[in-house]
């Protein structure tokens, strides 16, 4: 397969970026999207040009490191996959593919397609955890958890923190990410103890870092590689409002 690539190139955070056009030929339809970029980078290096910088790590859809806004969609034209799980067979031969970094004020571009997602870490550090005293390992079944609660919590915990929700939201809102963390802990007895503090702290941090608010467009849910439901956003709203009203 042959493709025309239109890729965002930006030297560093300070410099002004622009699109560069590339062509890539004889790519197998079974090539993954990142492998296609590897092939392109090989060609660039061989001809003495700067390779395209992009984030990646596990390449099996669980680390949350890959990103890329491909032809107007976070993680490209496939559902419930990360960019590393996307294959070239999802495109047509001869397609022009536009590749942009996540666009969000809270995710500054580091280089080319790499953005700094430290803002997510800061949100987690503000309350996305449970405080545990040191000591021996607790008994496995000492704290019973209902099956439905456990399932709901696990669904939310599937979030890999890739930032596709922010990238695709027209408001650049991080509500799906925050709600996934709040929800996964709120459904468990261990997480309930700090639930109020957690919801307030994480929302305050999210607002402070410049993420937008949720207007319930459901775009995040559609582009989330883990298909995390906006019902978790409803739970976050509930947790937050209840916590605030009790202050």
């Amino acid at each position: 397969m042959n493709f025309k690539l239109k890729i965002w190139r930006q030297k560093n955070n300070k410099s002004k970026g622009r699109f560069e056009n590339y062509t890539i030929e004889n790519v197998s339809s079974d090539t993954s999207f990142l492998e296609m970029l590897d092939i392109l980078n090989d060609q660039l290096i061989c001809t003495g040009q700067e390779p395209v910088a992009f984030d990646h790590d596990c390449r099996e859809g669980i680390c949350g490191m890959c990103s890329l806004y491909i032809n107007g969609r976070a993680h490209g034209p496939d559902d419930e996959v990360t960019t590393c799980q996307l294959h070239m067979r999802k495109f047509k031969d001869g397609d022009t593919i536009t590749i942009e970094p996540w666009r969000s004020g809270a995710f500054p571009v580091v280089k080319d397609l790499v953005v700094n997602r430290y803002a997510f870490d800061q949100i987690l550090q503000s309350g996305g955890f449970i405080s545990v005293n040191t000591g021996g390992v607790p008994d496995g079944n000492a704290i019973p958890v209902g099956k439905e609660d456990a399932d709901e919590s696990m669904d939310a915990a599937a979030c890999i923190g890739c930032g596709a929700c922010v990238a695709t939201c027209k408001n650049g809102s991080a509500m799906l990410f925050v709600s996934a963390r709040v929800s996964s802990l709120a459904k468990l007895p261990q997480g309930k103890i700090e639930a109020k503090r957690r919801a307030k702290a994480m929302v305050a941090k999210m607002d402070e870092l410049g993420f937008g608010g949720c207007t319930n467009t459901q775009a995040c849910e559609a582009e989330c590689p883990k298909a995390i439901s906006i019902s978790h956003i409803a739970r976050l709203n509930r947790e937050f409002l209840c916590a605030k009203l009790q202050d």
Partner: peptide
């Protein structure tokens, strides 16, 4: 405030199919 959250816009508009037209244009 929401507009400020994305200072640099995308070159290719959002092609996500799920969001309803009304939701995006409230």
């Amino acid at each position: 405030k929401n507009r400020n959250a994305r200072p640099v816009k995308y070159a290719v508009g959002n092609n996500t199919e799920a969001s309803s037209w009304a939701a995006k244009n409230m």
